[in-house]
Design a protein around this nucleic acid. Structure first.
Length: 870
RNA sequence: GCGGGCGUGGUGGAAUGGCAGACACGCCGGAUUUAGGUUCCGGUGGCGCAAGCCGUGGGGGUUCGAAUCCCCCCGCCCGCACCA
């Protein structure tokens, strides 16, 4: 282990000192609203990282996230922007309730203790945060405003109640989150989980589906993949809604409505399938116990789409039959199937096994007919058959009556036209996106501010009675929602008629809390949810940074919420995040002892041959795969311990240097020590320069001085470009190069201008490294600069264009695409000069002897390629 | 299952149609040091004595030229609506 007690750069003393200096100078504070008529208004820049859930300790994912954001914030500040960079806490959620049930700690106490611990850890990272804006979503001063927003949404028709399914644990008598359902059973009780219908609040996100989809195209600073994922999630589809008449009505139902995107394949129909929750399925179950048993089995799959779709396809034949819209006198069986979702379309499908894989799997299992109706190009009607793979590609309709010969798209239009003529159906645009269910049967969340009155119905809590705060005296010694059990909290008079009524005891989904926090940061003390002037000034967020796992839900809900706030008069903007960056995970090797127990990295000693053994007893340890850090596998590294041992700058530098930030990074001990050595090297390189007397620049500098100046100014250009494009690992590499150039100059013979060039290069290097290693930059800056200005307050260096122009460029010469030589040319050399120089290269000349040059390609300053024919 | 992404030396990666391997880790050699998990210098894709050939997960294609664009396949990762 390196002894870090007597190093040249004492980070343990320096880091807290510079953090105190930034605080004392209020370097990172900005006003909610800029002062009137400023002499030179600075453009605003709002940098935000996804706020953390206060679990108790920061983890490496947080360190990565906040380091990335801090580099952007510090860089933009140096570029002259007025940067707002706030921090807060996503403080409601299940873990606090779990802690309360398991350890008897009140969720509020647990949460606030965790926040205090994590705030201290974040402060040690040296982040350029405006802590004056901090809040937690569990503060009534925050969630009270959220209740106001909800009531505004309710008045605007954007919130409504309806029945929807939850995971119900019949033993604990409680609603479970999807993550609490393991293999169809409750995580605590082990009981088989059932789907249960409850009246729940929903937000009408589907009303904004077209706008949310269309706006994606203009979001140039969002990753392409996130936009694609959101577009697929919103899922606009064109198709047909049509009714299949039942041959015999069942419980008053005489037809089944189906939505399909493939009306061209109607002639390939083989069966009709209902979702297990479909009203007709319910009706059949009322008289058919076997159907009821099948539906009950489907309910045990839980509510998660992944669980439903990965389960083996199963069905139950109801015995009912439906008529075909086009085929006179032909009917098809009606099944109940576990893979049909009630939430999508109409909750019923027509099955065309030949051209849909799920339908095919189902048909093969139950021996239903498979009739191809789309003929792939080049196939013949007689020779074409479906095996175990459905055909979903292009082709011409066949076996399809009046559609025969039409291509897929034309056949769709013709089928829809025929349905509309016959009054059996119509063309329809459908959306995969569903309304957002926000009710949660939990204590530790924002209370939904409504009152249920037997006489008046659902009444909003009057604005002057907000916030509806959570009661503190709650008990977690029995299952269910403590708000519901509370002896007095829910009993209130009806705000309209004054009779005894009761509060809604459900709380909001925590995604609601995180759907507008970025707006609250603009004016965290406002008496309204947001101060319009402040929000109009700071929004949208210029750069948002967080994990790719939030690509859909959090980001889409925030985009919806912003529009809903716009339409209720709270905001001017539609899009909350102008720029988005999604980072990869932090991973680590995992270790297991012979008995299978997972070991923490610090319990393991790595040997030079790559094997590993336990530190305590030298027992062999098997080195497992590199995967996301998780407590269960114990492959975690504690950021606090890393900062203790190496300092915040080292942790930040390693995280930035290791790999591109959008990819998963592997945390390694070797990588950390490498980063640590570089911080020390930079100090050793620059501190002596600071001790030299300042020298004037030379009018005619020597070659080493000029080379150093060129290297330093090239570094400015390269680091700037790398930071602008989030290529932080490339920025690190360019800083390494500049440091190498400075070290080389140190070894050069003394010459005119060298001392001045070294001082200039050192000063440039300090400022280029400052966003990434801010403490070390201040330490060196204080030694190098006479005046006491903080590096955090100094501008970004500017490259001298004259020093960026290369004296010569190397142009590669290819013959038939293979490298045969290279020539040095002045930059911008013309085609004739380049081709002539290329032909003079002996290696090239030899390669050209073999044949006749038929084509000459010249890309200025890059390449010459001779195409030679035999 | 469906949707999205990623894959380059021993390792992390650079190059986004134009000299593959910048920069760093590791390793090898040398120097300094009382010592070293210190510092400094040099070397380092594979095969080959060399000329040279091969090489960006695998296969095919477009192009004068492909890590980069297109198609198929393999592997790994993220999301799937009550984890945050």
């Amino acid at each position: 282990m390196s002894d870090t007690t007597d190093l040249a750069y004492d980070f343990r003393a320096a880091e807290p000192r510079w953090q105190a200096a930034w605080d004392a100078g209020a370097c990172f504070a900005v006003p909610d609203i800029p002062a009137d008529a400023p002499a030179s208004p600075r453009a605003k820049y709002y940098v935000l990282e996804m706020f953390p859930y206060p679990s108790g300790k920061i983890h490496m994912g947080h360190v990565r996230n906040y380091t990335l954001g801090d580099v952007v914030a510090r860089y933009k500040r140096a570029r002259g922007f007025a940067v707002m960079h706030p921090m807060g806490w996503d403080a409601f959620g299940l873990p606090a309730e779990n802690a309360a049930r398991e350890r008897g700690i009140h969720p509020a106490r647990w949460t606030h203790d965790n926040i205090a611990a994590m705030r201290a850890e974040l402060r040690r990272m040296g982040l350029s945060l405006d802590w004056a804006r901090e809040f937690a979503t569990c503060d009534p001063a925050y969630y009270g405003h959220q209740q106001k927003l909800f009531l505004d949404f309710l008045r605007a028709g954007l919130a409504y109640r309806r029945e929807s399914a939850v995971n119900w644990d019949p033993v604990d008598g409680t609603v479970l989150a999807n993550e609490q359902v393991i293999d169809g059973r409750g995580w605590r009780s082990g009981a088989l989980v059932e789907k249960k219908q409850l009246a729940q609040w929903n937000l009408r996100i589907t009303q904004y589906a077209p706008e949310l989809l269309d706006a994606l195209a203009g979001m140039a600073r969002w990753p392409e993949r996130v936009r694609i994922m959101q577009a697929k999630w919103i899922g606009r589809s064109e198709g047909a809604r049509l009714a299949f008449p039942l041959l015999a009505p069942e419980a008053g139902i005489d037809a089944v409505e189906v939505y399909t995107t493939r009306p061209d394949t109607l002639f390939g129909m083989s069966f009709l399938a209902l979702a297990p929750d479909h009203p007709l399925a319910t009706a059949v179950a009322a008289r058919d116990p076997a159907a009821g048993a099948f539906i009950a089995a489907c309910r045990r799959l839980g509510t998660s789409e992944a669980a439903i779709e990965t389960a083996e396809k199963q069905g139950y034949d109801t015995g009912l039959r439906v008529a075909h819209p086009f085929l006179e006198g032909v009917s098809f069986p009606v099944w109940i199937a576990n893979f049909v979702l009630m939430e999508y379309g109409t909750g019923a499908i027509f099955g065309c096994p030949a051209h849909d894989q799920r339908d095919l799997d189902f048909a093969r299992k139950y021996g239903l007919p498979v009739r191809p109706v789309v003929l792939p190009p080049g196939e013949t009607a007689d020779g074409f058959a479906i095996g175990e793979t459905a055909y979903t590609g292009p082709g011409a309709a066949f076996n399809s009556g009046f559609l025969d010969g039409l291509a897929v798209d034309a056949a769709k239009r013709a089928a829809i036209a025929a349905l509309e003529r016959g009054g059996q159906g119509k063309g329809e645009v459908n959306w995969r996106l569903r309304d957002w269910g926000v009710s949660r049967q939990r204590y530790w969340g924002c209370p939904i501010p409504v009152i249920h009155c037997e006489a008046c119905g659902v009444m909003p809590v009057p604005d002057d009675q907000l916030p509806v705060t959570l009661p503190e005296d709650v008990r977690f010694d029995r299952p269910g929602n403590p708000l519901d059990h509370h002896p007095t909290w829910k009993h209130v008079p009806c705000p309209a008629c004054g009779r005894a009524a009761h509060r809604e005891t459900d709380t909001f989904d925590t995604f609601v809390d995180s759907s507008w926090y970025f707006a609250r940061y603009c004016s965290p003390g406002a008496t309204a949810p947001v101060d319009r002037a402040a929000a109009d000034h700071w929004l949208p967020v210029d750069q948002y940074i967080g994990g790719i796992e939030h690509a859909i839900l959090h980001l889409l809900y925030s985009r919806f919420f912003t529009r809903a706030m716009r339409d209720t008069g709270h905001l001017a903007v539609a899009e909350p995040f102008a720029g988005l960056f999604t980072q990869g995970m932090v991973t680590h090797e995992s270790y297991r002892a012979a008995d299978g127990a997972w070991l923490y990295p610090e319990e393991v000693e790595k040997l030079p041959d790559g094997s590993a053994r336990r530190r305590t007893d030298a027992a062999p340890v098997s080195v497992g795969r590199v995967e996301a850090m998780s407590k269960s596998r114990r492959n975690t590294v504690d950021p606090g311990a890393i900062i203790d041992r190496y300092g915040a700058d080292t942790a930040r530098w390693f995280i930035l240097a290791d790999n591109p930030p959008e990819r998963d990074m592997e945390w390694t001990e070797a990588g950390v020590t490498g980063a640590f050595r570089f911080t020390q090297r930079l100090f050793r390189l620059i501190a002596p320069i600071a001790a030299l007397p300042a020298a004037p620049p030379a009018a005619d500098p020597g070659p080493a001085a000029l080379a150093l100046r060129r290297a330093a100014h090239r570094a400015i250009a390269a680091v700037t470009e790398a930071l602008e494009s989030f290529a932080f690992n490339v920025a690190v590499a360019r800083i390494h190069e500049a440091a190498n150039a400075l070290a080389e100059a140190e070894r050069a013979a003394d010459q005119p201008g060298l001392a001045a060039a070294r001082r200039e290069a050192a000063d440039i290097l300090i400022r280029l490294a400052a966003p990434m290693m801010p403490h070390l930059a201040e330490e060196l800056g204080a030694r190098l600069a006479a005046a006491g200005k903080l590096v955090a307050e100094r501008p970004w260096p500017e490259a001298d264009p004259a020093l960026l122009v290369a004296e010569t460029v190397t142009v590669a010469v290819q013959v038939n695409g293979k490298l045969r030589g290279s020539v040095a040319l002045p930059p911008g050399a013309d085609r004739a000069a380049a081709l002539a120089a290329a032909r003079r290269d002996p290696n090239v000349a030899r390669a050209l002897e073999s044949g006749r040059v038929v084509k000459e390609i010249h890309v200025p300053d890059r390449i010459v390629n001779f195409v030679v024919a035999e």
